[in-house]
Amino acid sequence: MDKKLTPKEKGIRLLLVLTFSFISLVALFPVISLVVASFSPSTDLMRFGLTAELFFSGFTAENFEVIFGGEAGAYWRWYVNSLIVSGVLIVLSLFFSSMVGYALALYEFKGKRFIFILVLLILMIPFEIMMLPLYTMMVNLRLVDTYFGVMLPLIVAPIAVFFFRQYCLGLPKELMESGRVDGCTEFGIFARIMAPLMLPSFAAMAILQGLSSWNNFLWPLIVLRSNDMFTLPVGLATLLTPYGNNYEILFSGSVMAIIPIIVLFLFFQRFFIAGLTSGGVKG
């Protein structure tokens, strides 16, 4: 096919590829910069910013020596906190949201339409409006500064409910009937017959929920009080002051926070893409 291209078409192809190579480079530049920064003297970075020279000067591992060398402060606590919060949230929110989405798609029952409208409504009302009453609620329930307090508002995610519903609309209802004939409980039908068919949607939502709780900032910032309970973004943000003395942790820690995600992305690209563009599923 390539051989049939006219010189003009070849020119267009070259132009397109060059343009997008440049765009890709711009898109990746901050990520590359972050890696460079993590291997650069952190006090220089805070004083002069990221200079072009740092890309070519010798690399130092001192930032990594700090976080891996026992002077990491609470950094690994933050990491573990983020892992716990994201991990538990993925499990809980997938379990509950998939059940709700499944029921909304595959059962006929009174109030179904109304509930679906409620799902859409919550999707549209900004969380920030309800933030202060939710915070008061956490104070009253003594959930401030706890893992559960951070997770509670995110356990049944409307976006995931919506996504699972759309996905389940495409599943064969007849399988549910044959499950009933075989004497399965209704939950058994969901867990043993239908859920395996929903695996791609589970993968996409695990990534969406995992990523959004890993990167979540405002709510943890409000609910968490003590340094030892901070999640990664909240903890890293505390290092961003002009008067700090932990800049080594800021840069090596930031790299350690995003590299695992990028590695996961390279392996599970398809599910990442499905998860992050789930808002546009046709209704």
Binding site: G49, L50, A52, L240, S254, A257, I258, F272
Partner: peptide, 26 residues
């Protein structure tokens, strides 16, 4: 797509370094 994987805090940190106040920042 890769930038979408970063948190605002991590991405903002590196933006602050690239757009630093000093004349030497990138």
């Amino acid at each position: 797509f890769i930038p979408a994987l970063t948190s605002v805090i991590v991405a903002g940190t590196i933006f602050r370094m690239i757009f630093g106040e000093s004349d030497m920042a990138f």
